[in-house]
Amino acid sequence: MTIATTTELICFLVLSAVVVIGALGVVLLSNIVYSAFLLGGVFTAVAGLYLLLNASFVAMAQILVYVGAINVLILFAIMLVNKREDLKAIANLTTRRAVSAGVCAGLLALLVRVVVTTPWSLPGPPAVGEEATARIGEHLFTDYLLPFEVASVLLLMAMIGAIVLARRDVLATDVVTGEVADQGLIEKARTPLLMNRAE
């Protein structure tokens, strides 16, 4: 075995261990903040696996999108609402845990069966390595153009929806309840919140 393949094998084993143990930690730990940080670690390790597969662009996109955006957003949400209080005890906790463990074990068995029975050696052209970036771009703007555009329209809709929900003060009626919105907010919509405390 050459040095290069040994290094690759060691990297693969370490990354897989991080992914599996980290993912278990995300699910099993009771402290939600730890779970969120571990999720970031799992995403990073998956990016490492992509790197091992010579897909550096996908790896970097994984870090940028999942670690840099989604995980930070999750952390934001947790830290803005977290009050560090213990959750109320749930009835029949043991039964619930046993049921969910059973479902998870079944899912795992199914996945293991798929992994074992599928022939993984794909024919097809060899990996393109560093040229992958250009190739992904070509595909996005030719044969995958429609899904790409549909996804962007979907994201635009989600963004406008978020803005509407966040800026209820500029609408005459509340978008959720349909009642007349707070008149004070409408009248002062243009004045900054920080300045008129004395009134």
Binding site: M60, A61, I63, L64, V67, G68, N71, V72, L75
Partner: peptide
């Protein structure tokens, strides 16, 4: 660089 600098906020 762009993607690694997005880890820093964490």
């Amino acid at each position: 660089w762009i993607s690694f600098s997005s880890i820093q906020p964490i």
